[in-house]
Amino acid sequence: MRFECHNLCKVYLTRDGSVTALDGVTFAAEQEEFVCIVGPSGCGKTTLLKLIAGLLEPTVGRITFDSDAADGRLRSALVFQEHGVFPWMTVLDNVAFGLEMQGVGRQDRYARARAFIRKVGLSAFANNYPHELSVGMRQRVGIARAFVADPQVLLMDEPFGSLDAQTKLVLQEELLRIWKDNRKLVVYVTHDIEEAVLLADRVLVMSGRPGRIREEIQVPLGRPRNLSDRERPEVVEVKLRIWGMLEDEVRQGLEMPT
């Protein structure tokens, strides 16, 4: 499985004019690769994920991939920034949702959902509703739901963006652990550089709006990874490089003198 984005442009038409969110995004991603996309706020990261997911049509450009679905679409599972889990479904039904849409029978989908609910440590909450869970637990539900659906591409939109640092660390490790056993192509959006280098094989740095890919950086780390890896000199150097690029973009975005 490999997919390629060719010159993706997205223009939103609004009541008072148009907003160019993306302007010529080109990149490719390979099977089992973990790609992180970092970029300043509002540069079109969510837009890019929605284009890949097929929830939006690009204004210009196209995405190529080899599909295994009957209707020829790229089977993706998008974990949203927030509010992604259905408040009216229990954890179990939320996690089984993708399978339910695929027409998997109740027994089978519950069994498969339970397995992933255990992997994210929510077995005790399988029959609870999301409002009874913490924000971090809710994001785990979203992640379990995405993995259970067994998509070709897993798309994650700052899934841990609103969490405190400790919870974030725990969930990042959990995510890597699950991914190790269920290797698939992940495109993970974040604006946290630490997070990007901890998780990714490759980091794509986006420019400010209108977004394009400014640079691709290979993360010089093997797997499995642990926390102390982030302090290694070659990793620190990569972080500083990314930070340098983002700083430019953020400054330009704020229109501050350099």
């Binding site: 929830l55 998008l78 949203f80 259905f86 993708g98 849409m101």
Partner: peptide, 8 residues
């Protein structure tokens, strides 16, 4: 969007 994404 979630429903559409999962092919609902």
């Amino acid at each position: 969007e979630v429903a559409e994404n999962y092919g609902g």
